[in-house]
Amino acid sequence: MSFFKKLKDKFAGNAEQEKSTEKYKDGLAKTRTGFTSKINDLVAKYRKVDEDFFEELEEVLLQADVGFETVLELMDDLRFEVQRKNVKDTSNVQSVISEKLVEIYQSGDEELNEINFADGLTVILMVGVNGVGKTTTIGKLAHRLKNEGKTVLLAAGDTFRAGAIEQLDVWGKRVGVDVIKQAAGSDPAAVMYDAVRAAKSRGVDVLICDTAGRLQNKVNLMNELQKVHRVISREVPGAPHEVLLALDATTGQNAMIQAQTFKEVTEVTGIVLTKLDGTAKGGIVLAIRSKLKIPVKFVGLGEQMDDLQPFDPAKYVYGLFAEGLDKEDKLEAERADK
């Protein structure tokens, strides 16, 4: 049975699973048409698996922002695999490619993309550069957690950008959770202190802290973030339980440096890949996962409140290749008929 078939069977029969797979399919529709149609073209163009084929495949992957080093590694792996399995026909190579993509992503430890909930209060800190969608993600995440039956409190830690506090406030009202805030321009660490105190006295399950966007090369701002982190862990031992780095799927190779620098400063525990509903492929997460071992925990697939989905690498790759899968299915069926 082909890899895709296995994937598909895995998700079939389970209504919940199917629904979220559909979300992926819709959200990644544009990504898929770009990426998959290229792979399909490639397969159609080259009947045989040869160097030209590999070269062009390399380009398709580079265009997905996967990054040079990762692509080179992947190509080496693929060449080896193709040789080992003695794949000659390009139509069979699709499944090998996706298998390898998932493998690169999952290299090493078992995937852990659940939120790490504490027994008492769970603190989630949201960090990232400017304009990646931190505040929006917090709104969606709050909605998600509330639906799971958790009590949620938000902390308006972006006291710098004009309108940021108001933005979180609107999300708080939409979702129906309280927002702890101070005046614009106040010390974000002080806001966090207040928020943690409030969260404790109200006995909420989850506190989600917003922070101002900052470019990772701004030393002062990164120090400020460290202070925020410190204040939280002083008030709640073991907190923050999750530090989520929001990454824009349209970001190119700089995402790797973002992940690395934010990891050094705040011990990032997971990534939220936002704006994946555009044509961008977000391929850099493969590199980040394999180099820095930071898992992607959520993906943003649209502007609606429920457009935040837990990340599943297999589904992600399935989303990328869904068309190819259907084709392969048909081919197999035809062969079986004969």
Partner: peptide
């Protein structure tokens, strides 16, 4: 955004 990748 100057950080945009191939999709720019």
């Amino acid at each position: 955004d100057a950080m945009t990748g191939q999709d720019a």
